[in-house]
Amino acid sequence: MAAALIEAKALSFSWPAGPAIVEVDLAVAAGEMVAVVGPNGAGKSTLLRLLSGYLKPTRGEVRWAGKRLAGYGRRRMAQRLSFVPQYSEVNLPFRVEEMVMLGRYARLGPFRPPGPADRAAVERALLYAGVAALAARPVSQLSGGEFQRAVLARALAQGAEAVFLDEPTAHLDLSHQVQMLAVLRRLNREEGRTVVAALHDLNLAAAFFPRILLLAEGRVVAAGSPDEVFKEGRLAEIYGCRVRVVSAAGRKLIFPEIPNGKE
């Protein structure tokens, strides 16, 4: 494998309440599409935040393109990585295009006015994320799905080679979930951008992501293709319920067995 874009060595992080990430080693190559899955509290969000530099590891280190994270300035880092956080609430009525233009901060800095390249990047991002028609709407008036796509457009306008997303499909209905992930897959395939997403939905992870990272209690318990990672026994142990993995409609389907109450 070529030199990894993102590399973590013996990465550990503890909250005051206890350890959240324990001795994680991982490497993500440029152009990969990786889903981070695992039960609630497994450390998915924490791992993304550590890899992005938002949290500082208690032990271990993160390197981007071979260079330690601490060696990057904030704006240099934002040119490499854009991040779609899980809960982002905007209580001021910025228009969608204004908010997406703020994605250009890493390139523009505090003072330089936006030029044609920046406007072109914003326009492309709006189209790509499917919110071009909403450009003039205040973000405070968008539905949950529209808002999530506007935030994605902001991340795309940033023009970074890697995109992290924390639960990008939370609060989205079925069709919007699929749309969101289809946009990410296009981004990965057509533009070669590296995509790392924390996901709850194992079916979506299996359908869209060639590589899965399964976390439990802060450790990587399995990594590889969906076929390799999603095994009934392993999932049952980690999630603490009986899980079925079946093939249907050309896809891998994972679902919990539901007690029928007649036992």
Binding site: Y54, A78, L81, V90, L92, F111
Partner: peptide, 23 residues
Amino acid sequence: LALARPLDLIALGEETAFHLGLR
């Protein structure tokens, strides 16, 4: 007044502003 653009960023939330490139 000069810091108007970073103020826009931080109005989006601190974590978002961080990831958009603000210290």
